[in-house]
Computed example of a mutant assay.
Amino acid sequence: ADDLGGWLSQLTAFRAWEASGGVPLNVRFLLEGEEEIGSPNLKRYMEEFPDAFQADVMVLTDCDNPSTDVAGLTVSLRGLLDMEVELSALKGKVHSGLWGGALPDPAIGLCKLVGSLVDDQGRIVGLEAPGQSAAWREQVSALSPDDDDLRRDAGLLDDVAGLDPGDRPRVEWMWRQPHLTVIATSLPQPGKAANVILPKASARLSVRLAPGMEAAEVFAQLKERIEANVPFGLRCEVRQLQGVKGWAYAAEGPAFDAAGRAYRQAFGADLVKIGVGGSIPFITLFADQFPDTPLILNGVMDPQTGAHGPNESMHVGLFAKVVAANVLLLDELAATLGGAA
């Protein structure tokens, strides 16, 4: 589902039109295969082959749906900051029994340091986006997962609760606020345990940025906080590895009205504007390069897809509805644009 299924849904819709005599408007397909590594060559390709991107409307297919029965139109994405923190103390490994109590331990220091970056609810200390309006919160409240949803869709254990959302809908924390995740460390795996004090320890941190946050500014803020709270007098290095800004979109106008009609007919329910907590750098790039072109973001994922997991899946019933919606979308866009796109 992430993301060959999205592409297949578009190609299947196109083939359905071809089998019925041809599509009602001009369609150009562009397949970009580097999304999972940040699309490092896409901008250069855009600049070298600008004619390939000429369009009245663009449909970008790499997004989620609130459920298998309700389609989502993605209107916001979080940005991404990847950074690495390394603490050092020694020239090499030493015996923890002989030297423990005299030497600072970089591994323990790393755990303390990373833990100090978040509060008791796992929110990044001192880094928060402005709250959303009451109208927005009311609009998305029905889309917010409760703990039972988290257990069913994300595998939350029965005796563990989700993070307390407070007075906000939970999707506000998932779509419109920053979040910190440890995605790698240099600490030994259990099978390689040894009674030693490590000379150094590092962690790679992934920070999801709220729409509007700039990666460079957030990195500078976190770097300052980290360097001010290094435990045990350890040597500290902080490096930025990647930075992608977030994105938010009004999604209004004739093209989006056309999408609404197509999806309503295919799903039997209104198309719902949603956010996605993940980061899709190529979408931000399209928004920057083509600010006046409507971008319709759809996809075939649902809460139980398990994207990036070992058992990622695609719901066949949802896929069929998305294909039908894409068939109808071409017809609706042709009527809206007068057959030229």
Rank of each mutant, 00 (worst) to 15 (best):
V230M: 06
Q221G: 01
R239A: 03
L241E: 15
V238W: 03
Y249S: 10
V238N: 13
K245F: 00
E227N: 09
N229W: 11
Y249N: 12
Q240G: 04
R239L: 02
L234K: 12
R235Y: 04
E227R: 15
V244Y: 07
A220P: 07
A250R: 15
I226D: 06
A220C: 06
C236N: 11
A248C: 07
P231H: 14
E227S: 09
L222R: 11
Q221V: 00
L234A: 10
E237T: 11
V230H: 07
R225A: 11
V230K: 13
G233H: 11
F232Q: 15
G243W: 04
N229E: 08
A248R: 14
Q221H: 09
K245R: 10
R235E: 14
E224N: 10
Q242T: 08
V244H: 10
R225P: 14
W247V: 00
P231S: 14
A248W: 06
C236I: 06
L234D: 11
V238L: 12
G243Y: 09
K245M: 01
R225C: 07
Q240Y: 00
K223P: 03
Q242A: 09
A251E: 02
A250H: 09
C236E: 04
G246L: 02
I226A: 14
L222E: 05
K223F: 02
A220M: 07
K245G: 01
Q240M: 13
E224T: 10
Y249L: 04
V244S: 05
G246Y: 03
Y249D: 04
R239Q: 05
R235T: 06
A248Q: 08
C236S: 05
E227Y: 09
W247T: 00
A251G: 02
Q242I: 04
A251Y: 00
E237I: 08
V238R: 14
G233D: 09
Q242R: 14
L222K: 11
A228V: 03
A248K: 14
L222Q: 08
A228E: 12
F232T: 12
A251H: 02
A251K: 02
